[in-house]
Write a protein that binds this DNA or RNA. Structure first.
Lengths: 215, 215
DNA sequence: ATTATCTATAGATCTATAGATAATGC
DNA sequence: ATTATCTATAGATCTATAGATAATGC
């Protein structure tokens, strides 16, 4: 259920051929993700990006109008990959409480695969211009809503006690953050817990809390 | 129980008078915190820091040997303030489960007060040199250990079912992150939840989960 | 003719230091 | 004499663009 991505309609390009714009931007994103993860956004020169993609600095600026645009394309692509990853694995899962439980596990596994990328988003969202930051935060909300829906389903099925809709949202955001935590607190968690151990603990933790009811 | 801070023994200065070094560095930190929160570390010139403190760029480099040093001093001061804030309010609290519960509330209130600062740490820890980053992460662990102790106390008092020590640690880190979440997800939470509402939800959430036992 | 790409560079920074000056204490 | 501070600037970037060149299609 990954939305149609309107990015390339929004980020301005000098080049007319839309397919070329699409493939070149994908090249730019692929190269930049790795450079940004390694060195950070501010310490990666635009020249270095162009070099990694394999064309000149002049050409880079035919496909974006600023370095800020590149960062936005990167963040957007990461969110898209996360969203697609979750939807792909969650599709076959059942409804109700077991579906929610499975969803959490699937989600944390995606966070594990995308750990570097998630950490990049945490670091660099603040570097984005206000305009692009809004889009990135909207992406974040859209992904969170996957859990909002799952929780509501579990309530409908009678597996969870009814909750205020504001509590459903807060619970969904908390699940999101617990997934991210596996990425941005790796420096502590890695080596002490396995991915499976972490998933077991946190799903149990979340499930025990929600089963109480009264939120 | 805020430790004696050995920073100024570690960050190199050209100036001999230790008291002068101490007060000047405090000035540098106070000015930099605000500049970094507003513009970010990379977009704040060292010149601008010196200007804000009220002395020359040359003098700035008498008290630190690089811009990286300034960022470290800032991160360290923030952690110190958070730690002191928690200890100040938590001191009078009782032991056991109620002490843990109260501790979570106190901690989230500190996170609210220090929200800008916490977000800065999340953004800029990655910009630190490896050397300083290690120190900052150690600070983070030390603060987390406040909760490790509280949880262990609650277990000793018989208020919580016994837990593996690895689970105690993971629970403490999760509590830390739930506090931080109030800061770094303000863009969503602010306006939808009050601080008190957030604290009520999350303490209840955590307490319900831990009461289950079997971790 | 039009589109895509490249070269060369303007123009604006920014960090860090060297060496001069001022202030303090013997 | 020693310590603290300031001025001036070296030296190294970095983003973004203007204008030239190459490739493609009519």
């Amino acid at each position: 259920m990954a939305r149609k991505r309107p990015d390339e309609a929004v980020v301005v390009s000098q080049v007319k051929n839309p397919e070329l714009v699409h493939t070149r931007r994908r090249q730019i994103v692929d190269a930049s993700v790795h450079l940004f993860i390694e060195k950070g956004f501010h310490k990666t020169p635009t020249r270095r990006i162009a070099e990694a993609v394999g064309f000149s600095i002049g050409s880079l600026y035919e496909y974006v109008s600023s370095k800020d645009d590149v960062l936005y394309l990167v963040c957007d692509a990461i969110h898209d990959e996360i969203e697609t990853g979750i939807h792909r694995d969650i599709a076959g899962e059942k409804r109700g409480i077991d579906g929610l439980k499975a969803g959490i596990g699937i989600y944390i596994r995606v966070c594990d695969t995308m750990a570097d990328h998630l950490q990049l988003i945490y670091q660099e969202t603040a570097s984005l211009s206000k305009k692009w930051r809004r889009h990135v935060l909207e992406n974040e909300v859209r992904i969170t809503n996957i859990f909002v829906e799952r929780i509501e389903q579990a309530v409908e099925e009678g597996d969870l006690a009814p909750m205020k809709s504001s509590s459903v949202e807060l619970l969904a955001h908390t699940i999101m953050v617990i997934g991210h935590m596996w990425a941005f607190r790796r420096w502590f968690l890695k080596g002490r817990y396995t991915l499976d151990g972490y998933i077991a603990f946190q799903t149990r933790f979340i499930m025990a809390a929600t089963q109480e009811g009264g939120y």
